[in-house]
């Protein structure tokens, strides 16, 4: 049994937590933009946190579930509906077979993650399920999901005892996500190698200004609009770059590299977004403005470790809650 895409979204793809170990061949890691939301969606349905999910952008795909299923949506709130029942984010939802899941309006955030209990039946490509759009490989046929695509589900459960007469039954608990995201749109950064090329005034401009995410932003990177930051022309050889790297282009504008970034680059790197703030950045959209705040390498690491510990606690709590929930209804 499976789920069918009955209407195509703007840019929806299968992603997991990334493909590592191939960057020396020019194959970049890709993976979910919001590295936290993918894990939350998975733990809400009892999956491994790194399992493959569907990353949705608005307007998102419309899905027909041909079987009963347990699903969860994390990250952005796109006003999800099962038939005519509105469903919440960050909570497990049991749905009847032959129900339609659609997304009605972009309420909050930029990317939603749809996980289904047991996961999808997909083929690994280089140890990952992430869609590599450039290579046309991984995920589902190496491309965005299209109308009439059909994704097989790994598991089949009978949820009739939960559903009774309703098409969608939501759990009476949800995950609080506040602690994973920074509310004030202050993105924490650590120093980049070429920051030393900048004058004191230019560094001041970077630190004190606000920068707007432009519409020329996608999974590869965010093009920012703000005061031009002067950087002396200096020939630079291409060298390894990472997700979150902030480069200055020739016109003094910034680009922040995101999940589909290239493996190497040759623009001056003035700063790097810390791993713990990538999820916040991933949920911002065009016209949102951000400011930057310097932190140390140790602070960056600590923030990431703290996030992971919090995730681990949530996962443990979810496992217990799900067990309880399913036992009540006699589901194994």
């Amino acid at each position: 049994m499976s789920i069918l895409i009955v209407k195509q979204g703007i840019a929806d793809s299968i992603q997991d937590t990334g493909r590592f170990g191939y960057q020396h061949t020019g194959i970049n890691p890709t993976g979910a933009m919001d590295t936290i939301a993918i894990q939350l969606a998975n733990i809400l349905v009892g999956n491994d946190p790194t399992a493959a999910v569907i990353e949705l952008h608005f307007p998102a795909s419309v899905f027909l579930f041909k079987q009963q299923a347990c699903l969860a949506i994390a990250g952005a709130d796109f006003g999800a509906m099962i038939n005519d029942i509105p469903i919440a984010t960050h909570t497990p939802v049991i749905i009847q077979k032959n129900c339609v899941l659609q997304f009605t309006k972009p309420i909050k955030g930029a990317r939603a993650y749809l996980a289904v209990k047991g996961g999808f039946t997909l083929e690994h490509w280089l140890n990952s399920y992430s869609t590599h759009l450039k290579a046309g490989a991984g995920g589902y046929k190496g491309r965005y999901l299209q109308k009439n695509d059909e994704l097989s589900l790994q598991e089949h459960h009978c949820f009739s005892s939960v559903l009774k007469d309703t098409d969608a039954e939501q759990a009476n608990w949800k995950i609080e996500t506040r602690d994973f995201y920074t509310n004030d749109k202050v993105i924490k950064v650590i120093q980049g190698k070429e920051l030393s090329l900048l004058t004191e005034e230019a560094i001041q401009l970077f630190t004190a200004s606000s920068f707007q995410i432009t519409s020329k932003s996608d999974r590869m990177g965010y093009r920012m609009k703000g005061p031009a930051i002067a950087v002396p022309a200096q020939p630079m050889l291409s060298t390894g770059i990472t997700k979150g790297t902030i480069q200055i282009l020739a016109d003094g504008q910034l680009i922040i590299l995101m999940a589909d970034h290239q493996t190497t680059g040759g623009y001056p790197r003035i700063a790097h977004v810390i791993s713990a703030d990538i999820p916040t950045l991933a949920q911002l959209t065009a016209n949102d403005s951000i400011t930057f705040k310097w932190v140390t390498q140790q602070e960056a690491e600590d923030a990431y470790v703290e996030q992971e510990q919090h995730l681990q606690q949530l996962q443990n709590a979810c496992i217990l809650r799900l067990q309880e929930y399913f036992t009540t209804y006699g589901i194994h």
Binding site: F20, Q23, H24, L237, S238, T239, G240, I241, T263, T264
Partner: peptide, 18 residues
């Protein structure tokens, strides 16, 4: 260590903090 990226005159070593 999960990725090693050789370039013209540099090697970048990417690692898993956790």
């Amino acid at each position: 260590v999960r990725d090693i990226i050789p370039a013209y005159s540099s090697v970048t070593v990417c690692y898993d903090i956790l």
